[in-house]
Each structure stands twice: as C-alpha cells, then as structure tokens.
Simulated assay, not measured.
Amino acid sequence: MTTQVRTASATDAATIAYVVATAFHPLDVTRWLIPDPQERANRFPHYARILIDHAFEHGTIHITTDLNAVAVWLPHPLPDPPSYATKLAYACGVWTPRFQLLDQAMHHAHPQDLGPHDYLAFLAVMPQYQGQGCGAALLDHHHNYLDEHGRAAYLEASNTHSRKLYTHHGYTDCAPPLDLHYQGEPMYPMWRQPPTPGNNRLA
C-alpha cells in the first residue's frame, strides 16, 4: 500500500507535536534531555511546537494522510523563532540548560558555508508504523522538490538506525557526531547534495 503524503496545515499542529514527542520519546538524546519519562512526555510536545510553529510560518511540514508520520523542514539560513529563549524556558523548565547545550552543539556542527539549503528539524513516525516506509515516503516527497530546484539538505540523524535510512537517501556524514557527554548513541550531522543534471541517483 502506497503511503500518501500531504502538506500539513496549522490545524494539524497539535497532532504533529504529539507524533514528534511520541517517536522521539525513547531516543538516547531525548532521554538525556529530560530523564524523567513523564516529564519528557509532558514537555517535549511544547518544545516541538516551537519549531513546528516556526515551520508553519517559514518552512514546510509534510504529514502522511493517516497522521502517523511527519517531516518538519526549515529553510537555512533562517533566524531563530521570535522570543526563542523565553519559549524554550517555558517549554523545558528545569531541563532548559540541556536543550541549550543541544542547540549549541547543533549550531556548531551545522554547515554555514555550503549555501542555502533545507534543514530537516524533525522526521518522526509513530512507533507502531516504523519500518513500513513512512519515513522514506516523506523524504522522497520533499527530495523531489529539492532536486527540481537544485537545493541541498541537512539533518542530524538521532542514531545509527536513522543514519542508515538517510544514507540510503543520499546523505553523507559532514561533521563529527555531536559530543554531548551522555551515555548512548550520538547524533550524526549529515548533508545531501542534489543530483547534478543527468545524474539518475535515487533521491
């Protein structure tokens, strides 16, 4: 069965935040950000909404029609969301310093000299639908647009499993893994250059 993808609207914001928070809940980096599971479940949707709302204003969000998978893209360069520090503190509470460390590490790794590109802030699939091609369908959907416009893409893979998925879709490591001094898998900065004209490489 083919996965159907559509562009999300602002009315989908709460659902998108829930999918992101649920999919990211067991990741090593997320467990480090907010160790308490209940706090993580309560706070992460509010954190995700900061970037989701920013993407509705400036970027692109795609969602599967069954609402079980989402991809949140932001153009780069792009300023931080308005009042970002205040919103981050409200969303993350006592865990804000760890989110600030994550921001600093991601900013340090993010290529600044390779020209405009799209940044994949979140690719999230509900746990029971992972491994069924939903993430690949979302990637292909946006990569088609990027390739038509000769535009590159950047992301941070959250673990070796997602890194394999992104490698299959044309991404390569572009910086050392993020060093945040937690136990578990690091995040891997990855870059995707669009195919040159006449190159039939898969997206």
Results as ranks from 00 to 15, higher is better:
A71P: 14
Q128H: 07
T7Q: 11
R192L: 02
D28P: 05
P189E: 10
A175T: 00
L120D: 09
H54V: 00
E57S: 14
R201Q: 08
Y129W: 03
G184N: 01
P195K: 14
R49Q: 15
S83C: 10
M187C: 14
V5H: 01
W95A: 10
V19T: 09
H107A: 11
P77A: 11
D113L: 01
L202G: 05
Q130H: 07
H143G: 06
H107G: 02
D118P: 00
W191V: 13
A136Q: 09
A23T: 04
P79Q: 11
A136E: 11
T64H: 05
L139D: 13
D66N: 07
A13I: 06
I16F: 10
H108A: 03
G198S: 08
S83K: 15
W73V: 08
K164A: 09
R192N: 04
A121F: 02
R98Y: 04
R98Q: 05
A85G: 11
V5F: 07
R43S: 14
P77V: 13
H168D: 06
P77R: 14
H108D: 00
D28Y: 02
A41E: 09
H168P: 00
I34F: 07
P194G: 03
I34A: 10
A21N: 02
Y154H: 11
M126T: 03
Q132C: 01
V72D: 02
L180P: 08
A91K: 04
S83P: 08
A175I: 06
V20R: 00
H143M: 09
T15R: 15
T86H: 14
Q104K: 06
A85Q: 15
G115V: 13
G115C: 03
M106G: 02
M106P: 00
P77E: 13
F122Q: 00
P75N: 10
A136V: 12
P116H: 12
A69S: 13
E57L: 09
S9Q: 14
P79F: 15
P111G: 12
A8M: 06
D12H: 05
R151I: 10
M1N: 05
L88I: 14
Q38G: 12
E148C: 13
D147I: 06
T2M: 00
P79K: 14
L123W: 06
D103W: 02
D80I: 08
R31H: 13
R40N: 11
V94Y: 08
P194W: 04
Y84F: 15
A55E: 03
A136I: 03
P197Q: 08
W191Y: 15
H110Y: 05
L114S: 12
L180Y: 07
C174F: 02
T196H: 13
S83F: 02
D113W: 06
Y47E: 12
V125T: 14
Q128V: 02
P195I: 10
A91Q: 07
Q104L: 03
A41G: 11
C92P: 12
H169W: 05
Q132V: 01
P35H: 13
G135A: 11
R6K: 14
P82W: 06
N199A: 11
A23D: 03
G133N: 00
H110F: 06
H58L: 10
